[in-house]
Simulated assay, not measured.
Amino acid sequence: MTVLVSVWGAAPGVGKSTLCAGLPRALAGAGLRVDHFRAEEILSRPQFAAVAAEFGATGAVGLETPVAATERFVASVLAGGDDVVIADALMPFVPTLLAMGHGDEAIDAFMADLTHVLAPVRPVVVFLDGDAGAALFRAAEREGPGWLGWYVVKLAAYEVSPPVSDLASAVAYLRRERAVTLGAVRRHGWGLVVVERTDGLTPGEVLGAVGQGIRPWLPALPQLLRPP
């Protein structure tokens, strides 16, 4: 059976991109068939073409559109026969829903539909946790001058709550985004692996922790991803 591993994190700079680069290689090296949906290419995949088109035309997306796209995604995954699909910042779409101003009730109803659609691929969320403020500064060091200001302005343009106007309010919003995402995943019975305090771990230690965490859903995974 195919397992969908969806990777999220507490904030940019927490190590999600590094994990998403290493995890597919490690799983493939362990003998598993792996597909990787990279964040920068997701909307270019044919399964999500309708999402990209609707957002480009209106600046928003109806809740039925990502559900229908996910149905196409699941069909393509099952047809491909991979053991594991790694999705970088894709399902369960909670940050996107928050950015469009949807509240807890709408998100919960959406998650119920999404959970039903994703049942054949057994979704597991890997969440890299850590201090959001410190992670943003690491991301700014990586991306260069002006990135942090751009990111705050980007969040400020969305209909998020609490509203964002500066770095402190951006961190407060990211904490809410974290809470809503983890709460929705837990309520709807998805697999969940939380790697805590990732800022104190090396990339290899994070990879090892994730490998141990996803083992219940991949019982055939060899002992090649060792814990920290």
Rank of each mutant, 00 (worst) to 15 (best):
P95Q: 03
P95L: 03
P95K: 08
P95Y: 08
T96F: 15
L97D: 05
L97G: 08
L97N: 09
L98Y: 06
L98V: 09
L98N: 07
A99S: 14
A99Q: 14
A99P: 01
M100H: 11
M100L: 13
M100Q: 15
G101K: 02
G101A: 05
H102C: 06
G103N: 02
G103Q: 00
G103S: 06
G103R: 00
G103W: 00
D104R: 15
D104Q: 14
E105I: 10
E105Q: 13
E105H: 12
E105D: 15
E105V: 13
A106L: 12
A106C: 01
A106K: 10
I107C: 04
I107H: 09
I107S: 00
I107T: 04
I107F: 01
D108M: 06
D108S: 13
D108C: 04
D108I: 09
A109R: 15
A109F: 08
A109C: 11
A109V: 13
A109G: 14
F110P: 09
M111Y: 07
M111H: 10
D113C: 10
L114T: 04
L114D: 03
T115R: 10
T115I: 04
T115E: 00
T115Y: 05
T115W: 07
T115S: 13
H116V: 14
H116Y: 14
H116E: 15
H116G: 13
V117D: 01
V117N: 02
V117C: 02
L118F: 03
L118P: 00
P120A: 11
P120G: 11
P120Y: 11
P120S: 09
V121Y: 02
V121T: 01
R122D: 15
R122P: 12
R122Y: 12
R122F: 10
P123Q: 06
P123R: 07
V124L: 04
V124K: 02
V124G: 00
V125F: 08
V125R: 06
V125M: 13
V125G: 01
V125D: 07
V126M: 08
V126N: 08
V126D: 03
V126F: 08
V126H: 07
F127E: 01
F127M: 06
F127C: 01
L128A: 09
L128P: 01
L128R: 05
L128F: 06
